[in-house]
Amino acid sequence: MSFDPAAIRRQDDFVLQNVAGEHLLVPIGAQVMDLNGIIILNETGAYLWEVLAQERSLDELAAAVADEFDVEPDAARADVQAFLDEIAQIGLLV
């Protein structure tokens, strides 16, 4: 795990927008040079991105996803963990 499960927050310098049904995450400012690309998020990823505007714990995020998408807590936690691992790897978490 490459993040602190008690305090997770995303980088601010991005715009997330639904374009023709696709959730596009576009970097702004200095992030453009570091990332050099546009990221496509699925429904869960887009939801988590919005929630991560404020600092959250892994437990809070898993509970939020379980509630929002009506899935089992264990499955939600696994999904959240996978998403966070992925975005942490490309530097999208603070």
């Binding site: 374009v19 023709a20 049904g21 696709e22 596009l24 546009i38 496509i40």
Partner: peptide, 9 residues
């Protein structure tokens, strides 16, 4: 359109 969104952007 959904698949074209990132291509155009």
């Amino acid at each position: 359109p959904a698949a074209a969104a990132s291509l155009l952007t």
